[in-house]
Design a protein around this nucleic acid. Structure first.
Length: 623
DNA sequence: AAAAAAC
């Protein structure tokens, strides 16, 4: 039987007192103090247990808490009494704590770091939270009824059902407050499905379009889970940090961005988020870690460093999330990730919750990834106007030697058509770091303020470049693939693939830097004989996104002999991936992703505009 | 073949 929340508070407080007297039986272990109870003077103890009585909790579980949230955030529609709420509250043991903490925090001043916590919602910061700001998207004319038609595939045993509103999920009042502060009115499709799956204790491999709210989808269950697990004990070694959750991403800037988001979601919850990445002074990161960490956001290299110095231990990890998971498991990263997950003391799969997220998930990477997962749910979710619908894609045939003058033409046209007062940002992708520097130099010489971001620049230069671009000071950013994934840069109107990538997945991620937050975007690609291997997948992708495929590109595509193993899912499919575990019965010739939808399994939601495959030779689950 | 990721 569970002890009550009030008991646990009293227990932790008294055990802390014992520990202070040096008479604890296990001197290397201190009782875990829940994040929201830390740094609390002992003299306040009597007040605590009195606050969250059993009756208050019952009251909260029944109607008060739920309807309060529903009323303020959902209008009248979300206020129905949900018979499941009581049960969920029992399961997660959180509802009562949420209310108790809220009142408690009002009474007690100066005991918690929350008093000095910088308000991440202050000032202009608030305007930055637009990616999932549905009120804004509604204003921009998106038809939200179309969400009903979003193709969703879930596979795996007994997937917890999706929810339609945040109020159906018992995330806790403090987190709910932050969700409101972020102006998230309604969960995005990936959030509707992913959050119940993880809160239900299941592992997850999730495939969802760029800009569809993945960060919140893995942060919410982590934060909620950490707040509701009151009885966890963490060892304390003087200089070793024991995070409960680890979020890994492939670039430093993306880790920073996730950290910033996670700070918003955990504001005033007492859940501590720390970021660690290379290229920045390690001492500041070490100090932050020493002050305590619940959620560690990191890039792999720096994390390995910290683990080898024994400044971080993964022994207490309860949640592991890999963002851009397919990149994290590709050839360059996989050994490092395997080391972190399998050889550095992290609890085995099954003893932790593991979440893998990306917009793309090649089959061979899925196979690798399944090593890290336990009886997982595979989830593929498209979204309204999947980013490729919001993005107009153009391909021009441009010889290598003509690329610069062609870019110049684009930029001049843009400058002439530009609306004054409205910042137009252009992101130019090139293949190499040297190429980035040289193109930036040339652009500046020719009167176009540009900057560049790539792995040969110092971290300071990289961050300065990103800031300068975001602010519009240098409205052109020349980038390598370091900027291809995950970065949420508002107001990018135009992505130019000056050099096309060799992998269609990289193309998908690159163009996903525009067309965000319900805005439309333009993506222009320069194609020549050097990109022949991309002809077929690119033509298929464009066809699938209802883009105009130039006749010359279609010819290249049909001539391509490559087909085979590099064959992709875009021909005839919609966005999304397919669970590689389900491919046995289809025959091995199916493209390496498979397709969302089809007539099998639990897939549902058929978009009305499906127009058939581009290339007749490509297998489709619809055929 | 290139890019990213530690000092």
């Amino acid at each position: 039987m569970r002890t009550s929340w009030a008991d646990s508070v009293a227990n932790s407080a008294s055990e802390t007192a014992v520990s202070d007297n040096n008479s604890l039986r296990r001197p290397t272990r201190a009782t875990y103090v829940p994040p929201h109870l830390r740094n609390r003077p002992a003299s306040d103890t009597p007040n605590i247990s009195g606050l969250a009585s059993e009756s208050e909790r019952t009251n909260f579980n029944g109607t008060a808490g739920g309807s309060q949230w529903s009323r303020s955030s959902m209008g009248g529609g979300g206020g129905r009494t949900n018979p499941e709420m009581g049960r969920q509250s029992q399961v997660y043991g959180y509802a009562g704590a949420g209310r108790g903490v809220g009142r408690w925090n009002n009474r007690i001043g100066g005991w918690d770091r929350r008093e000095t916590e910088v308000n991440p919602f202050g000032g202009s910061d608030e305007a930055d939270v637009t990616d999932q700001t549905f009120s804004e998207q509604e204003n921009s004319g998106i038809n939200f009824d179309a969400y009903e038609d979003i193709p969703v595939e879930t596979s795996g045993e007994n997937a917890p059902p999706p929810v339609n509103t945040f109020s159906e999920i018992d995330l806790g009042e403090l987190l709910n407050q932050n969700i409101r502060r972020c102006k998230y009115v309604k969960p995005t499709p990936i959030q509707r499905h992913a959050i119940p799956i993880v809160l239900g204790g299941r592992d997850l491999m999730a495939c969802a379009q760029t800009g569809s709210g993945k960060t919140a989808a893995f942060c919410f269950p982590i934060i909620s889970g950490i707040m509701s697990e009151q009885y966890v004990q963490r060892p304390h070694a003087a200089r070793t940090a024991y995070p409960l959750a680890l979020i890994l991403s492939p670039t430093r800037e993306l880790s920073c961005q996730i950290h910033d988001e996670a700070k918003k979601f955990s504001y005033q919850t007492g859940v501590k988020v720390v970021v660690a990445y290379g290229g920045a002074p390690i001492n500041r990161q070490l100090r932050e870690l020493e002050r305590g960490v619940d959620i560690l956001v990191a890039t792999p290299g720096r994390l390995v460093d910290l683990l080898e110095r024994a400044r971080v231990s993964l022994q207490m990890i309860k949640y592991l999330a890999l963002d851009e998971a397919d990149r994290m498991l590709d050839m360059g990263f996989e050994p490092q990730i395997r080391k972190i997950v399998e050889q550095m003391g992290m609890p085995d799969r099954g003893m932790r919750r593991t979440m893998l997220f990306s917009a793309t998930f090649p089959r061979e990477i899925q196979r690798l990834a399944s090593d890290f997962l336990s009886n997982y749910i595979f989830l593929a979710v498209g979204r309204v106007g999947s980013s490729t619908d919001l993005i107009v894609q153009r391909v021009e045939f441009v010889q290598e030697s003509d690329k610069r003058s062609n870019l110049m033409d684009l930029l001049h046209a843009q400058r002439e058509n530009g609306v004054h007062g409205k910042q137009t940002l252009t992101l130019v992708f090139v293949e190499t770091k040297k190429g980035a520097d040289s193109l930036e130099h040339w652009l500046c010489l020719n009167g176009f303020p540009a900057t560049t971001i790539h792995g040969d620049r110092t971290q300071q230069e990289r961050e300065l470049a990103l800031r300068s671009f975001k602010s519009g000071k240098t409205p052109i950013l020349v980038a390598t693939d370091v900027a291809a994934r995950g970065l949420d840069i508002p107001h990018v109107a135009h992505v130019v693939n000056f050099d096309l990538p060799n992998d269609i997945d990289d193309y998908v991620h690159r163009i996903g830097r525009t067309g965000r937050a319900g805005k439309t975007g333009l993506a222009t690609a320069f194609f020549n004989e050097g990109n022949l291997s991309l002809a077929k997948p690119l033509a298929e992708l464009m066809q699938e996104a209802s883009q105009e495929v130039p006749a010359w590109l279609a010819r290249y595509a049909s001539r391509t002999l490559y087909g085979g193993s590099k064959n992709r899912r875009y021909g005839g499919g919609r966005f999304g991936g397919r669970d590689f575990r389900r491919e046995g019965s289809y025959g091995r010739n199916l493209d390496h992703y498979g397709l969302v939808g089809g007539n099998s399994g639990s897939a549902y939601g058929v978009p009305g505009n499906y127009g058939g495959g581009y290339a007749p030779g490509v297998a489709s689950a619809w055929d």
